[in-house]
Simulated scan of single mutants.
Amino acid sequence: MSGAVALILAGGMGTRMGRPKQFIEILGRPALYYTLRAFQEAPEVERIYAVGEAERIRALASASGIDKLAGCAGPGETRALSARNGLLLCREEDGTVCMIHDGSRCLVTPQLVGRVVRAVEQGAEGAIPVVPVSDTVKVAEDGRVLKTLDRSSLRAAQTPQAFRLGVLRQVFSAPEEVLCEATDDASLVERAGGEVRLVPGERTNIKLTTPEDLILAEAILAAREQSGSRP
């Protein structure tokens, strides 16, 4: 075991979903169960920290045999501020690999967790999973196309995103206005001049955002169960 830690952000209100998406039931279990289970089963992970409704998360972990859960923090007003709150839970040394993961990406696999951890252990300042962009992407303004981007160089970023804790502590010490502009953790590291390595993501590692995503998530999990892959 390499002793990495995972920080699960599970404090969203699910505005577009109409309810907190991390607790929506999929195949009879809360979505967050599958997220926690993936990190529980990843041998690279020693401890899991979570940001969200602490009592509910602890109850879920206890009922599900998630014994790596080491602490919970309350959410902030934005994703980045929630991540900052969660980092305060981490007492590990600066050299420890820390992954930050969106709790609503409940289809993450232990294999993907291992890939991002190993990339940082092998010398990267940061590592994020990405998948190629398959759609043609247009830059638009006032209802018209300004230009079409070359999709061969475009990648869609996913989580978990992994960094040394010392790097995260440095970039999350930035002013709140800087943190609130960040769309993911890697952008803060990039802004500070750090190099972020790309590792292969997984098409199935979708983020629950709209009700339609639940249909796809259920189908993926059902297929995994049929094939014998434990969710």
Results as ranks from 00 to 15, higher is better:
1 M>G: 13
2 S>H: 14
2 S>Y: 13
5 V>P: 03
6 A>K: 11
8 I>F: 04
10 A>M: 06
10 A>F: 06
11 G>P: 03
11 G>C: 07
16 R>P: 00
23 F>N: 04
23 F>A: 06
24 I>E: 00
26 I>S: 01
28 G>D: 00
28 G>Y: 00
29 R>T: 03
30 P>D: 01
32 L>T: 01
33 Y>P: 05
34 Y>P: 04
34 Y>K: 05
37 R>S: 15
43 P>H: 02
44 E>G: 11
46 E>L: 11
47 R>Y: 10
48 I>H: 07
49 Y>G: 12
53 E>I: 02
54 A>L: 10
56 R>Y: 02
64 S>D: 06
64 S>V: 04
64 S>F: 08
67 D>S: 13
73 A>T: 00
74 G>Q: 11
79 R>P: 01
80 A>F: 13
80 A>P: 12
81 L>G: 04
81 L>F: 09
82 S>A: 08
82 S>D: 04
86 G>N: 15
88 L>H: 13
93 E>T: 05
94 D>C: 14
95 G>D: 13
95 G>W: 03
96 T>K: 05
96 T>Y: 03
97 V>W: 04
98 C>L: 15
98 C>E: 09
101 H>R: 08
106 C>D: 07
114 G>H: 09
116 V>N: 11
118 R>D: 15
120 V>G: 05
122 Q>T: 10
123 G>V: 01
124 A>N: 06
127 A>V: 14
130 V>N: 07
130 V>Q: 08
131 V>S: 14
132 P>S: 10
133 V>W: 11
135 D>M: 14
135 D>R: 14
137 V>I: 15
140 A>L: 12
140 A>P: 02
142 D>A: 11
148 T>R: 02
149 L>M: 06
156 A>C: 09
157 A>W: 06
157 A>L: 07
157 A>R: 15
160 P>C: 04
162 A>H: 12
162 A>P: 09
163 F>I: 08
166 G>Y: 06
167 V>Y: 10
167 V>T: 15
168 L>G: 05
175 P>D: 10
176 E>F: 03
178 V>R: 09
179 L>F: 10
188 L>M: 14
196 V>H: 03
200 P>F: 06
206 I>K: 02
208 L>W: 00
209 T>V: 09
210 T>R: 12
211 P>T: 01
213 D>P: 04
213 D>M: 03
217 A>D: 04
220 I>G: 10
223 A>D: 13
223 A>T: 09
224 R>Q: 14
226 Q>V: 08
229 S>A: 15
